[in-house]
Computed example of a mutant assay.
Amino acid sequence: MARFSKQDWLDLGLTRLSREGASGLTVEALCSAAARTRGSFYHHFKDHDAFLEQLLLAWKQRNTLDVADAIMQQPEEKRAQTLSDIANMLDQDLERAVRKLAQSNPIARGIVQDVDEVRTEFVVGLYCNMGLEETLAREIAQLEYAAYVGSQIIWPGMTASDRIRLDQRFASMVAKAFLKD
């Protein structure tokens, strides 16, 4: 049997969090799903809290930092649309599960707050680069991000294509109202 790496545990944790919520993240549930012993788990993580922290940092890396890096590789005129496409294709079940976990877990809450700040600031930067004044860029970014997160909760079954369509509508409205030459 191949060794189960730290990354394997994190991948399993993200999958279980997306599918089962926090109840799928107990050490017992993880070990059972991985067909590994508790010793294998504790070889990589000091305790369950350390696992949760690493799990949420892995989520932050994949769903925020890696996304931002991918966007910045695009030509400036394609960044906003690429961000919409990538963000709306993320695992929305995982996004909701992380936020639900953050309601009761201070480790998750701190990381989610950091992610929200990083994501919002990233969008502020995109709008500033498009010519908006920073205060207005921040207000629009906050509204757009609140709509993104809110839609995950209000319409959990909304398809990625429907989310992208709504995001395109929002971008069109912003462009017409604020990005006039």
Results as ranks from 00 to 15, higher is better:
S104L: 07
K6C: 03
W9A: 03
E133D: 14
Y148D: 02
K78R: 15
I86D: 05
A137P: 06
F4C: 08
A160Y: 08
A175Q: 14
D93E: 08
R3P: 00
A146D: 09
T15N: 10
A137Q: 07
V174R: 03
K46E: 14
Q54F: 01
M72Y: 11
A147L: 08
R19V: 07
I140E: 06
S23I: 10
R163A: 04
I154V: 15
S23E: 12
Q168D: 13
T15P: 00
D181C: 04
A97S: 13
A58R: 15
I86M: 10
V118K: 04
A70W: 09
L166I: 05
R119W: 06
H43Q: 10
M130F: 06
V115T: 10
L30W: 01
H44G: 03
K46V: 12
Q73D: 12
L65Q: 12
E144F: 13
V98H: 01
Q61D: 10
R163F: 04
D47H: 14
A50D: 15
E28Y: 08
Y148P: 02
E76I: 08
A175P: 01
K78G: 07
R138F: 11
N63T: 12
D11K: 10
F51A: 00
R38E: 14
F170Y: 14
I71L: 10
V112I: 09
R62Y: 04
Q92W: 05
S161P: 05
M72T: 12
E20V: 00
E95S: 14
N88C: 15
V149E: 05
G157R: 07
S5E: 09
V112F: 01
D181Q: 13
S172T: 13
E117S: 08
N63A: 14
D93C: 01
E134H: 12
A97C: 02
L166Q: 05
L30Y: 01
H48M: 06
S84R: 11
G125V: 03
S23R: 14
K46A: 14
L179I: 09
D69K: 15
L10R: 01
A87I: 10
L55C: 02
P75T: 08
V67C: 09
L94R: 02
E28H: 08
G110M: 03
R62C: 07
V174Y: 03
W9P: 00
L83D: 02
S172Q: 14
Q7A: 13
Q74R: 15
Q103C: 13
L30I: 08
A50T: 11
L179S: 06
A160S: 15
F178G: 03
A137M: 10
V98D: 00
R99G: 04
F170T: 06
N63S: 14
L10I: 04
H43I: 04
N129K: 05
V27A: 09
I153H: 07
A147Y: 01
I111C: 03
L101E: 00
A2G: 07
C128W: 00
A177W: 04
I107D: 00
C31G: 06
V124N: 02
R119P: 00
L126K: 06
D69I: 13
N105W: 00
E95L: 13
A35T: 06
F122H: 08
L179R: 09
D91F: 07
